[in-house]
Amino acid sequence: MSEEIGEAVPQSQKSSWATFIKQIASVSGDLSSLTAPPFILSPISLTEFPAYWCERPELFAAIADTNTDEERSVAVLKWFISTLKGQYTSRNEKLGSEKKPLNPVLGELFYGYWPATATRPRTNLVVEQVSHHPPITAYYITNPDKGLTLTGHSAQKTSFSAGSIIVKQIGHAVLNVKLPSGQTEEFLITLPKLRIDGLWYGSPYIELTDTSYIQSSTGWLSTIEYKGKGYFGGKSHQFKAVLSPPGSNNAARTFEGLWHITSKETSPGRGSSILDPFTDVQGPKEEVTVAPIEEQNDWESRKLWKLVAKGIRESDFDLASREKSKIEVGILHPQ
């Protein structure tokens, strides 16, 4: 196996990538202040990432159609697992490797929606960058006709360990479901830890690690354990989710598989079959609908980063760097 650093990096960017890797390895604390080489940047801002929560809006809307506490917890778990592919592997599949999103500026906005169809009402999205140091992104997703509201915030604390970047996702989401009785059930959703591998060759990819949770106000709890390549079975993107009833640590139902492809229920609950897939995210997803750039205000993400994104997509890294600097200097040191 070749040991050349950055062997997957464009020739013109090898020097900057080698410098970047050395910088990462030399930092003992948080890596968020480091500037990544332009070729590894994604053409979208981090403010767009909350849209991944609802790129399968049918599953989100279906949460409101359940009849029992257990069914709602299963539906929430199914929806959550189905969001992971978009959040953590879509850049790798579309762009060839994981890309670093553009760091939002304070006050940056992102608005979008998923239009109504014959089978579901419209779902709306509002995102705002509410802090710069530390960077924190807040989001609000609502389907008012279904009585569903998701609010949350996210931030990242990054460090370097054993050749990988470790990302601790700080923050959580809260899903409120208005019930026919008039009461509201609440789900607290924590976020998994990330490990970014493939750095040496300039072809980074994400694995999820450790454990995250979905706690319902009714007492039902989903405990989700993530394992990646290099662990049991040698497969990437494995998970196992255990759903426990109120007041018990015993599993009522268990689901497992590959969160970026398919999964199944391995200890079927009432009315389910072990042969039925739990999730299958290989089919089409629905992109969020956004107003045309010319109709956006100057603080909306796609208008704000328009020229930077153009440079990244066209591999014009001089343009991307120049326009990115203009935005960052203009925000931090306005005239």
Rank of each mutant, 00 (worst) to 15 (best):
N249T: 08
E295C: 03
N67F: 13
V130A: 02
P245D: 02
V308W: 06
G233H: 03
G311S: 05
P180H: 02
S216D: 07
T83F: 02
L243H: 07
E265G: 09
W17Q: 10
I5F: 11
F239G: 03
T254F: 10
L258P: 00
F80A: 10
P135D: 10
W17P: 12
N297A: 01
D65G: 13
D65L: 12
E4D: 14
D298T: 07
E287D: 14
K178Q: 14
H153G: 03
T123E: 05
G147H: 08
T68H: 14
L84R: 08
P10G: 12
S244I: 01
S97G: 15
Y226I: 08
V281I: 14
F278W: 09
G163T: 11
G311N: 04
L148W: 15
F39N: 01
F278E: 09
L191D: 02
H333K: 09
A162H: 15
S325I: 12
S45T: 08
F187C: 05
K264S: 12
L332H: 12
E300G: 01
P115Y: 00
S273P: 03
F160A: 15
A309Y: 05
L150C: 05
W200E: 10
R302D: 11
S28T: 10
T190V: 08
A155Q: 05
G233K: 05
P57C: 13
S301Y: 06
S301P: 06
E207G: 08
S82E: 14
K324P: 09
Y205W: 11
A320Q: 04
S181D: 04
I165F: 01
D69A: 14
V288M: 09
G311W: 07
G147F: 11
H133W: 13
S28G: 13
K168H: 04
E93S: 12
E186F: 08
